[in-house]
Nucleic acid binder design. Structure first.
Lengths: 236, 236
DNA sequence: GCGCGTCTGTGCGCTGGCATACATAGCGGT
DNA sequence: ACCGCTATGTATGCCAGCGCACAGACGCGC
């Protein structure tokens, strides 16, 4: 499956990189929770009560329009944290956070987070540094959304997911992907069909397998390399 | 012109809202500089040496692709600060910052900024809060870029500029606007022509005048209201 | 093993935005 | 007043992606 991979130890890298002293101080405030595919971590505009540090799930940030159309603005895996508004001084995020891939996350209450953040040490620095990479990713996405065609963005998206999953197989319907890319389901069907014909992926009823990673990279827009370089998502 | 308006005192609101104690401490580090239309505040990937607090100019953050295509990902006026990477722990931004409207800004050296930021007081809080609104704006833009047609995005953009300018007249070629919206110059020509025919704006050789603000709002996509509510840009 | 719901492939007409090419139209300098 | 540069308006052909409609296809439950 998607989480028993030897190169993916079940930890959050952001937390893992903290000095022991900090790690031990916040450990009591951390609680492991499980998200299923499509679970909503928080709703747009909702008051946040916790932040979540993904362990082996992937969380997508979706911006939803009034008519229900959505587009992904960021993707967070074990390298980051979900709910940055809590330490940035807002109480809500403008986006919906959805588990794009099932798995576990460590959650931490707002109060404990803010308290540790205010200490201003390595924890604050790590959170801010991650926020900066998220900002980069969002900038990237904004421009990519505007300037690149569906099939290239699909490649980019598959690669970004794969980097956070460390497995070549993922569970996702075309409907879900369409919501991320901000296109119709049929558009994904066509684009994915082309990739399958090209032998880059195998696709069957909500189960995608990446067959040719290098091929996908070649077909993706420049954005993938840019965002991978900027964000600290391991490539295995 | 565009800056002798009584409701636009020549200050940066973010700095202005700081307690006197902080204001006096950082005052010696602030230096007023002037930007002309199109001046580059910093280039993508360039190491930042200062942050800039716009006073009566507007700075656009543009993401540039390898082929030269660009798209705006954020717009900063007197309500904010340009160069957030300096306190977020990066040394460079993934975007180019361009003066979309000529005017002045207060600049502050990286070292002084970081020193004051580390104090963790109201200055830090204000910077982080602004970063959060910028994040909101970028999310918004990413989705809007994907989901809304050119003419609606042009309305949104004109309104956002106008709110930061506090004048109904602005100096801008269609070429520049095209770079912001991530479309061709001809596309702007058509969209602006439609707005002019509808009596919403007057357009002549790089000089745009907003004639019917309410009409523009009605024609803009929902994004304008959302981002205006979220970001603290005054509406006069 | 049958039926139904979910997921996926496909076709068709339409529109927005692209590339290209060209025609004006102001504005400043000599 | 003339020239040339910059800024803008416009036409044509083309393609991507939309909305809609529908046809398989696989899987699960009874």
């Amino acid at each position: 499956m998607y989480q028993d991979h030897p190169t993916a130890p079940p930890v959050n890298h952001l937390l893992d990189a903290l000095p022991d002293e900090v790690g031990q101080r916040i450990a009591p405030d951390l609680e492991m929770v499980q998200f299923g595919l499509g679970d909503v971590v928080y709703e747009s505009g909702q008051r946040l009560t916790h932040v979540h540090f993904p362990v082996d799930c992937i969380v997508s940030l979706l911006y939803a329009m009034a008519d229900g159309a959505t587009a992904e603005i960021g993707m967070i895996g074990a390298e980051g944290v979900v709910g940055i508004a809590l330490f940035m001084g807002g109480e809500t995020m403008p986006s919906r956070a959805v588990a794009q891939c099932a798995g576990r996350a460590l959650r931490m209450p707002a109060r404990a987070l803010q308290e540790e953040f205010r200490r201003g040490g390595p924890f604050q620095a790590a959170l801010l540094r991650f926020t900066q990479t998220l900002l980069t990713q969002m900038s990237q996405t904004a421009a990519c959304n505007r300037l690149h065609p569906t099939d290239q963005r699909l490649c980019r998206w598959l690669l970004l997911s794969r980097d956070r999953l460390q497995s070549d197989e993922m569970l996702l319907t075309q409907e879900l992907i369409a919501g991320m890319l901000g296109v119709r389901r049929e558009g994904v069907s066509v684009a994915a069909g082309a990739l399958q014909t090209a032998g880059l992926i195998r696709y069957a009823r909500g189960r995608i397998t990446i067959l040719d990673r290098a091929g996908l990279e070649a077909r993706a827009c420049e954005c993938y390399q840019s965002v991978r370089d900027a964000c600290s998502a391991p490539v295995d």
